[in-house]
Nucleic acid binder design. Sequence first.
DNA 1: CATGAATGAGGATTCATTCAT
DNA 2: TATGAATGAATCCTCATTCAT
Lengths: 218, 218, 218, 218
Amino acid sequence: MDEKDLLHELMTNTDDEIKLTPKQAKILQAAMEIFAEKGYASTSTSEIAKRAGVAEGTIFRHYKTKKELLLSIVSPMITKFAIPFFADHFIKEVFEKKENESYEELLRTIIINRFNFVKRNQSLLKILLQEISFHEELQIKFKEIFIGKVYPRFTKLIKQYTEQGEISNDFNPNTVIRLMMTTVIGFIITRFVVMPNHEWDDEYEIEQTIRFIRNGLQ
Amino acid sequence: MDEKDLLHELMTNTDDEIKLTPKQAKILQAAMEIFAEKGYASTSTSEIAKRAGVAEGTIFRHYKTKKELLLSIVSPMITKFAIPFFADHFIKEVFEKKENESYEELLRTIIINRFNFVKRNQSLLKILLQEISFHEELQIKFKEIFIGKVYPRFTKLIKQYTEQGEISNDFNPNTVIRLMMTTVIGFIITRFVVMPNHEWDDEYEIEQTIRFIRNGLQ
Amino acid sequence: MDEKDLLHELMTNTDDEIKLTPKQAKILQAAMEIFAEKGYASTSTSEIAKRAGVAEGTIFRHYKTKKELLLSIVSPMITKFAIPFFADHFIKEVFEKKENESYEELLRTIIINRFNFVKRNQSLLKILLQEISFHEELQIKFKEIFIGKVYPRFTKLIKQYTEQGEISNDFNPNTVIRLMMTTVIGFIITRFVVMPNHEWDDEYEIEQTIRFIRNGLQ
Amino acid sequence: MDEKDLLHELMTNTDDEIKLTPKQAKILQAAMEIFAEKGYASTSTSEIAKRAGVAEGTIFRHYKTKKELLLSIVSPMITKFAIPFFADHFIKEVFEKKENESYEELLRTIIINRFNFVKRNQSLLKILLQEISFHEELQIKFKEIFIGKVYPRFTKLIKQYTEQGEISNDFNPNTVIRLMMTTVIGFIITRFVVMPNHEWDDEYEIEQTIRFIRNGLQ
DNA sequence: CATGAATGAGGATTCATTCAT
DNA sequence: TATGAATGAATCCTCATTCAT
């Protein structure tokens, strides 16, 4: 699972969804690259067409507007990023190994899993971060996913681990979620967006991050 | 110190620096608001002029280009945000109370101080976060300040506290800095950018954040 | 040859070169007219678009900048005006009749030929004269053609006629060229630019001009 | 007479005309320079003000419009250039030496005199040539001077020399005037506008030009 | 008399989108 | 289906001119 980047995935999903045509794929790929480089508003459809090797009109045959093109790139990213946190079949897949895993092990699995996901989709993360402030549709989708699905599941988990004494009950569960998520997401953003060219010892940083969270919440 | 927002500060500096004219102030204020709302690239100079109540030409009399307007808004933000971390006279002002302060107390002072700074300059932070990816000038300034000034000072402090045993020496100092900063900045961004309308118990969150960092680094 | 004006020529070249589209032709025609009337700098692209009956954007689809539009109008004029003076196949065409023509006859052929050329391209000449001072590209092209191609050929001819005794060898060849050219070009400019509305007896003026040069150089 | 350039002359005329203030002189000087370099339409009043070292408003205190500034620079040029050809007291001054001068000597005096005039006022000539097509006021003034004053005088002179046999009466007097003027003016323009940087042997060229005209008209 | 900030109309150019082929 | 020429509104910016100081 998850060995392909999102775009590649979109192209080859054959379950019963519609495959992307090769031209569509090229358009999405080109748009993604340029959006990440210069931002949505500063990217012209003509530039996308040129990089994709299609006529400008072709873009609008597949996507009614430039904005629809953006959304069809970024929307799936929101879902896919959050899926392991709420979709049962994914959760099982991710966490299949042990039943009563320690929460440190859970944390490790999550971090490594999402780390690799972002590694494969760095451009998408950049675009998501940059554009979410300006497009209500993205904000709505984000809230739907996070508040509606991820958050309740997390709350349950946190409470469970608090009861088991692995997390200090001095902390409000919401605060725990906040601290965990900013630490994990902050790490990933630092690693892939802020300083992608720094020489990172990924394994080391991941382990220290886990330790920091584990100790921090005690 | 720091009771005014950056804009107000720029306008009233009277030491012997140049004050902003009222029109200039209105332009900056308007630009800041709209940039924060819709992003730099999606903001038109005519809209800025309208909101500022000046003619469009007036903007270009004060700022040669739209980009210069952006930079004159965002550049000071970078410096001002970082100043307490490197300018001696600020450091003394901020940390004057005790000589051999515990690092928890230091952390508290820093967080509260920067928390209040951002509280007064939320729009500027939004703009900075959104635009820094797209404007090399901002990246350069950022590196200059953070790598050149803040980072060395932090490294020294971290090493000192590590020697004193307050921070575990299992951690690489760079990793310590990373974990501290993402936690603090992550908190501030969550508080003011991601969920500004959530009902926050600021004092509580600050204390828990401090505790999280203190424990996390042990 | 040369019965069409330059614009018409550009439009109908079918050898295997690219034809101008009708819209492009209309744009060129309109631009040429207005540039000649009011000068390049005082002509707005919106006015050109209006006269050409196209949208303003259409101009920029065909010519990246206003200046490129100017150059694509004026540049060919430089070459075409000078071509009979250096391109062998033109020279033959122009001077085919007699082998050892007297230089008076040569002069007559040249004057009549260029006279008719300018008659068909009066606007272009006006634009060329007005704009060449301000656009380096035109000056470079001009030097390339005149110094590189026309001048050497002329020098050879002059020397030849001087040896044959038809031109006094009291004159420096450069001075001969200068006197001939200012007289011919001066006539053409007076005829078509300075006083185009005067009632001219063209044949008479041409003959007198030839006589003036012939006698003048003896 | 005529040792100063036009501008200097305008500044110091004290007969009973109004002197230019120093600021006015600086404005005229600056305007003249930049108009010659880049053309009237491409010159901004702010640039003139900067080069003149005055405020932009000051220009408009002295010249109601930018165009008035142009005219006050170029208009006198037309008159001054033509004056020796029609103003009695100048004619006497110029031609004082001999009563029944040969027309070759007359030609020499005129050419040298106007040559030196233009030498001192090259920028003005450039501006005049470039702008006369676009400003009716200049054309009117030109016609007034040339058709009204210079032309009749010239006609008389030509007729006189034709009667004396110095000019062949095969030539129509108008044609004679045309040939003489294009040769003289063509020389001056070539010398000062087309190839000002060429190494000229002025005396030689003047003598050859005179010879060319004298022989040409026989 | 001189200044220069302010104006707003107008300029060249870009761009998302449409539509005939 | 794919194209790309055409569009015209919108953009950033310039500039001659005005006017309060």
